[in-house]
């Protein structure tokens, strides 16, 4: 009976996200964008769904900076809109999923303060897509020290983690914040069929995050203990025992021990002992996640899954446009830019 009343809430939000997803740039357009010069790309984006953001920021920024800021702002606004137009269970799940942006923003402000960045520089890097609204982020950026920033977050769930900060490098609390956002998300997911897939998606996302970290840390030759502490538990295929085992391997051993996992199919053509860049692996893993989200969104149409699919697709679109614009600005070869696009 309860599900009967939940259905309209999901019907409304999924209809909206499906309509929004239709407005995203189709992947067939990316090769066309690659053939354009930077001014043409900027004009293309100005005339697209980003028009409003570009117009509003055009007085403040120019060229590629305008593009970067407009894309970031549009991303934040789209995610915030999702939270505004949903209610009940679906709103709760979206809010929990968007906490990653709160974590991102807190980390950005703390890092900014740590390295003495100006208020404007910090605010340029935040994405107001989580529970912390832009005015709150502005107040945080205005604080004098890291201690003041942490004190201003007393009312948030992140405060207990932040109080562990004892000065010096921020990486320890940053890792704990990441873990906290995933722990909260895993706890928030219920038992309906759609949510079971949502849980599976989150677990896959954790696996992919762990794999990316493993590749990076092992390539850099970081010690086992540090690697083990930094990895997030709760993944789908990479269980705690797997993470312990993998964190003790060398880069070459790591590459050869991944063929037992389903992710191997997505990355096998770019992974080798001698690989010099990890960018291709990141791109392939992101594409795997995007395809997975798109696939499961059709399993239970009236669930959180189509929302998740849109959220991920929008993020990837923004990232792709950034890659193209920045790549063109740096005059990189089209093939290099193309290899960094998630499609």
């Amino acid at each position: 009976m309860c599900g009967l009343f939940k259905t309209p809430a999901y019907a409304y939000i999924t209809a909206r996200v499906r309509a929004r997803k239709r407005k995203l740039i189709p992947k067939e357009t990316y090769p066309k964008l690659l053939n354009m010069q930077l001014p043409e790309i900027i004009r293309f984006i100005e005339e697209s769904e980003y028009k409003k953001d570009v117009d509003e920021l055009s007085a403040k920024f120019k060229s590629i900076d305008l593009l970067e800021h407009a894309l970031g702002r549009s991303l934040g606004a789209s995610y915030r809109k999702l939270m505004d137009i949903s209610r009940g269970e679906v709103n709760y799940l979206i809010t929990e999923y968007m906490r990653r942006w709160d974590v991102w923003n807190i980390k950005t402000v703390l890092r900014g303060k740590y390295y003495g960045a100006s208020e404007e520089e910090i605010l340029n890097c935040v994405v107001s897509a989580g529970e912390l609204h832009y005015p709150e982020l502005e107040l945080m950026a205005k604080k004098e020290s890291i201690g003041d920033v942490i004190a201003s977050l007393e009312h948030t769930p992140y405060y207990p983690v932040l109080t562990k900060y004892e000065g010096g490098m921020l990486n320890k609390i940053e890792d704990e914040l990441d873990s906290l956002s995933y722990t909260r998300l895993l706890d928030a997911v219920g038992g309906s069929p759609g949510e079971k897939f949502f849980l599976k998606f989150i677990q896959t996302e954790i696996d992919i995050k762990n794999l990316k970290m493993l590749f990076r840390l092992k390539k850099a030759g970081v010690e086992r203990e540090y690697v083990q502490n930094i990895l997030i538990t709760g993944g789908l295929e990479l269980k705690e025992s797997d993470l312990t085992r993998l964190s003790g391997l060398s880069f070459s051993e790591l590459v050869h021990s991944l063929d037992g996992y389903s992710y191997w199919r997505s990355i096998s053509d770019v992974v080798s002992d001698q690989m010099t860049t990890l960018m291709d692996v990141d791109t392939k893993l992101d594409a795997h996640l995007m395809n997975y989200a798109s696939q499961i969104s059709h399993y239970y149409p009236l669930s959180i899954l189509p929302v998740l699919d849109y959220v991920l697709s929008k993020k990837i679109e923004v990232d792709n446009l950034r890659v193209i614009a920045r790549g063109k600005e740096l005059k990189l070869a089209d093939e290099i830019i193309r290899s960094h696009l998630v499609m």
């Binding site: 009967l4 259905t7 019907a11 409304y12 939000i13 209809a15 909206r16 309509a19």
Partner: peptide, 21 residues
């Protein structure tokens, strides 16, 4: 009524994004 509640909600959602619906 039970059938219409979801269809109506979805229709309103689609119309909110694009009045052509």
């Amino acid at each position: 009524g039970i059938g219409e509640q979801s269809i109506g909600a979805a229709a309103i959602g689609a119309m909110a994004e694009d009045p052509k619906f």
